[in-house]
Amino acid sequence: MAQNGSGSVAQAVAAHQDEIFSEWLALQMESGALRSGRIKEAELRTQCRAFLEVLREGLAEGGTDADAPVFGRAKEMLTEVSRSRGMQGFTPTETAAFVFSLKRPMFNALNRAIEAAASEGGGAVRAASAATARYTWDVTLLLDQLGLHTMEVFLKTREEVIARQGREISELSTPVVKLWDGVLALPLIGTLDSERTQVVMENLLQTIVDQSAEIAIIDITGVPTVDTLTAQHLLKTVAAARLMGADCIVSGIRPQIAQTMVHLGVELDVTSKATLADAFRVALTRIGRAVVKAPRVEAPAAGRR
């Protein structure tokens, strides 16, 4: 039965492939597929033609079940289309339209095939009309399944993009800056979760080695809250730096944070200063430097005389 049914859908698609193609393309253009400018007409044409080809091949092999191996290539192609649209910032509707706008041209093709059979007269008419409902169901199911596949890939692609951006943000937001020869500062901004803290920690320790810095100032002025876990991460960073031969100073602990931490039973067993400036002064002293007030220079020309 399915063989027979799909055979007829296959015949209809094979016989009217060109009409399906132009109707499909026209529908997509009407619905504004090109309006965003993210895709060129030529590219859309190529995608449509190629997809229709693999779809026809799949149907010809006797399938209407999208999970059947004969539609493997069709799915691969959809994965590709959906992935590239996901990356380019297409909306879900725009992406799904690729498959769903194929429905009408497919139904039209089926109708034409049935009409053609009817014109032959006799038993063909009855057989054709009886089959219509089943063909419609088969095609609907097939395209819906393919549409769902498209959306799944689309969502996955977007999730990957979000995850990547998350990683990029966490790397960007933790710059280690050099304040002086041998003195580094790590101004932390935002909430510290354990994943981000790991990136921060590795980044700071590697920079300590690269610049052979004796002192690192971890400034947490921009950190809104410090929970037990974050405090532990901070302590671990300080301990790791010590093992490597560098000292850490924590600066900018807000009064509320200090209070919370004490209530949580976490005490930072490290040098702590109120501000980054205070910490920097301590750091300079430790490396044997001091900031002194310089005599005011009158004018640049004065020295030349």
Binding site: V209, A239, A241, L243, M244, G245
Partner: peptide, 27 residues
């Protein structure tokens, strides 16, 4: 003890080894 690598230091801290009795230096 000199020249401990960052990955080694992070791991040692996690392991719970603080080497309290030794001094450390970068190089």
């Amino acid at each position: 003890v000199v020249g401990m690598r960052p990955a080694v230091a992070i791991t040692l801290v996690e392991l719970g080894l603080e080497l309290r009795g030794v001094r450390t230096a970068l190089n």
